[in-house]
Each structure stands twice: as structure tokens, then as C-alpha cells.
Design a protein around this nucleic acid. Structure first.
Lengths: 252, 252
DNA sequence: CGCCCATTTGACAGCTTTCAAATCGCGTGG
DNA sequence: CCACGCGATTTGAAAGCTGTCAAATGGGCG
């Protein structure tokens, strides 16, 4: 239990601490950011493509995704987000949103004025570096999504997505053990993997009958972790996780 | 003609100036970075997946791409890079490269020690912000690549890629008018669009017979720009280009 | 009980890949 | 100057993966 655990913004510090070292001064400065809390329903838009983004939205609990709609009306989900993710540094720092951010589940979020974030970065360069660092990891996750779509078939894509989600949930401390939250419908999973919901359904069945996992009630139980990793060509390198031993003492 | 145009690192300043405002102090600090110049052949690896990245590589001329190989040996190209791009802030700031960076053509590059870059960012927060800004645009380009792969067919994907490349070349001032450098083989274009070289060939032929462009000798001539944009569902929003009028005076 | 949304299943069409082979362009060496 | 070799491009035919269309089933909620 840390001193800052009582702050609503604590999940953000936890997330940054996964990959960066912040001093207490910086943590305090971060937690002193002005914010507006909100609890939002599934499907709520946190940012809309094309709209000006004046606030930086932080996801404190629940799940969200980034997406964009093509001219023919189909949706592509770029990335999934969970507790501790800044879901639109992207949009807010660039001024005009170039994609949507939408919740998957009921979620708690904090809206932080863009100017407060840019000021914080300038006054505390290590925080800027930590944000840059996290942004770079976000980009690495996007690159892996590109491989997934460009060079893997449906079976591999879905296996890979599940591995990634499970690893990130474990890292963020949201879920533990072989059971993980599964906040997506098959249609949403299709939008995330470039497939139709029909084909997602068939492929999930194949993966299930191959004994990799079971899904029930927004909960997935992984039965064969190493097999699933192999099926999805999944390795953790691109997530740039630091060994846990590096993390425990660096915020002390 | 600006005072810094004689520096080998000038292309980097030009690139940052496309989207950020830097004072002369910051420009001078940037140009004072230590660097090692190199001229490299086509196909040279600037960074290799899995290797430690100690230097930050800047592309001064020529073309490069980021890529990764799947376990079954196929390659996926994530992004293309040209004059002025930092081709591995990603890798060098994260320490261990999670993908390859390879030249497409003969290129001039500058290797800058990672520490020098991080120090520069800390001493000059606006430079850090400019880099963060460019990193965010890189991420936006990755997201567009994800849409391309996930929700567009071969015809649309290739049209989109051509539009993007032409726009970026024009923005960077590398090419002008309807003729643009085309540094990729059909196989490389396939690796960038998640297609086989055979299908790229067939699709290029269709696009040519539809009158959108001609290709000859690493040079593409666009004959129907608005038609090509429509075919590829291309809009410039995600590139976050500032109006030229904002750019000319901000470095003065 | 009825409605609505998500899941499931089937049949068929279409896009893309695979495998193979021919052609072309170009630099090298005879 | 011409023959050769090699990589890139081009083309054909067939197979495979995924999408489309349609309909049935299941579960939750008013």
C-alpha cells in the first residue's frame, strides 16, 4: 500500500511505474493534476473522430478501445485499453481527434485539461519521458497489431489477441491466474482482428475444441497457455515489460 | 535559406518544424548533438530486432522501413520512412529493439548516442514535446495502416499507400508535382500491404488500367489524384499536417 | 411471455494465396 | 559487342481462407 493509493489517479501512476521510475516529487505533481471524474456506460464515446480534443482522458477502471470507421461503414479497432491507460494523449496533444475512443464496459474515467498535462510535462521532464515511453509501447502494440492483420490468419490472430490481453491484464494487476476478463463481443473481436463476427465465431470454436481455452460470461479461462502462445506466435518482447524485481523498489 | 541548413542534421529540424515550433535556442541545441554520419547501401540494417539499441538513428536522405519477421518467415513492413525521420526513437529509448529498421535505397544516416537525446529532451522540454508530437503522428500512421490491413481490400490498400507516400514526400519537400520517388519493389509493397507480390502485381495493373498512375524506373506519376484518393479512402487528417502558413514564420 | 441482442450454423461466392513458368531489364564477363 | 545470370515483373490455373447472406438458437430483461 502506497501513500498515493487513495487518489483517484493512482491507476495512472501504477501504469507508469510498470515501465518508468518516478520520484515522489513527480508522483505528487502528477496526482495534483486537476481532473473531472465520470462514470460512463458501455459504448460511451470518450473522444469522437474529427472533434477537437481539449481534455486528456484517463481510464481508471473498465475497458475501452480506439477505432475508426471507413467510408463504407465498417469499423476497425486499433487497440484495447484498460485501467491506468491514458486513452487519448494521442488525440488531445494533437488537438483534433483522428479516431474514436469508446468504452467497452461500464468504466470510470478522469478528464484532465490538456494544458495541465503539457505544463506538467514541461515542469517535470521525467514525467514527459514516462509518457513518451508509454506512448512508444503503445506504438509497439500497434505494430504487433499490424503483423497480426498483415501476416497471420484468423486462427493465429485471435490466439495472439487473447495472449496479449491476458498478459496486459496480468501486468496491470486487473486479473490473475488462468481466468481473465473478456470484455468483447464476437463482433467487437472481429473489428479488432479484421474479421467478420461470423468467422470469429467459427475460429473461436476451433480454438476451443483445440483445448486452448473456454469462454463463459465475459470471462476467459486459459487451459493451455504455452500452446496458445505458440498458436498465436506470441512473445512478450514488444510489450517491453520490466522484470518485476525492477519495479517493486523503484517507487519506494 | 536558414542558418542551420548547412548542418547535416538540418533535415531533422525541417521535419520537426512541419508540426512543432522550435526557438533558435532549441534548434541550436539540437544541431549541437553529437553524431556519426554514415552512407549505407540498400537493404542495410540500421537496427535489428532483439538487439540492444544504443544509438538513435536519423535518416538524412533515402528511404527506410520498419519490419518484423513472423515465426513462419514472412515479413511485415509497418511503416516507411524518409528524409528527416528519426527511424528508431522507438527502439533506442526502449533499450531493446522490437523490430528491424532497414534501408530501401542508398541512404545517408546519422547515429546519435541515446543518452545525448534523452539529455537534450530533459534540458529542452519543447524538443521533447516536438519528438512526442512526431511520435504521436507516427502512431497515427500506424493506426491508418491497421485500417488498411483490417478493412480494405488489395485495390484500396495499394491506392491508399500510394496516396500516403505521395503526400508525405510532398510535405517533406522531397518530391513535387505528379511524379514521386517510388523506392519499393512489388515484393516490398506486398510486405507493406499484407499481400503477396503476385497479387500486388495484378492489383497494380488494375489500378494502372483504371488510369490512376503510371510507374517507371522507381518513379510514379499520378494521373488522377482525386480518383486515387477516392479509391484508397484516403484523407490527410491522420497526418496532422499544419497549414503551410503556420509553418513558414514559426522558425523565423 | 415476448423482445432484442449475441451466438451459432450452413451454403455459396469472392478475394487472395500458392505453385509454376515465362518474360523482362540490367550488370557482368567473355 | 554479345552471351549469360540474376532478380524483378508478369501471367495462368487451381486451391484455400474469409466474407456474405440467411436462418436458427440462446439468454437476459422488461
Amino acid at each position: 500500500m502506497q501513500a498515493w493509493d487513495s487518489s483517484p489517479l493512482a491507476p495512472m501512476i501504477d501504469k507508469l511505474a510498470i515501465r518508468s521510475s518516478l520520484s515522489n516529487v513527480e508522483i505528487y505533481a502528477f496526482l495534483s493534476l486537476p481532473y473531472r471524474l465520470a462514470s460512463v456506460n458501455p459504448g460511451a464515446f470518450l473522444v469522437r473522430d474529427g472533434h477537437p480534443a481539449v481534455d486528456c482522458c484517463a481510464l481508471l477502471s473498465g475497458f475501452a478501445h480506439r477505432s475508426k470507421i471507413t467510408k463504407d461503414g465498417s469499423r476497425q479497432i486499433f487497440s484495447l485499453h484498460l485501467r491506468g491507460d491514458f486513452v487519448d494523449v494521442q488525440n488531445s496533444l494533437l488537438g483534433v481527434a483522428d479516431h474514436n475512443v469508446q468504452t467497452l464496459t461500464r468504466s470510470d474515467v478522469a478528464f484532465i485539461p490538456r494544458q495541465a498535462v503539457t505544463d506538467l510535462i514541461i515542469q517535470h521532464p521525467p514525467i514527459g519521458q514516462a509518457l513518451l515511453h508509454d506512448t512508444l509501447v503503445d506504438a509497439a502494440i500497434l505494430r504487433e497489431a499490424i503483423i497480426n492483420l498483415g501476416r497471420r490468419n484468423a486462427y493465429q490472430r485471435i490466439a495472439h489477441r487473447i495472449c496479449e490481453m491476458a498478459t496486459r491484464l496480468e501486468t496491470a494487476g486487473v486479473c490473475k491466474g488462468p481466468c481473465y476478463d473478456w470484455p468483447m463481443t464476437q463482433e467487437e473481436l472481429g473489428d479488432a482482428t479484421g474479421l467478420t463476427s461470423v468467422h470469429v465465431n467459427r475460429t473461436l470454436r476451433t480454438l476451443r475444441t483445440d483445448g486452448f481455452f473456454e469462454i463463459a460470461d465475459c470471462l476467459i479461462t486459459i487451459l493451455d497457455w504455452s500452446g496458445l502462445q505458440a498458436a498465436g506466435d506470441f512473445t512478450t518482447g514488444y510489450l517491453h515489460l520490466r522484470p518485476l524485481s525492477d519495479r517493486v523498489d523503484q517507487v519506494a
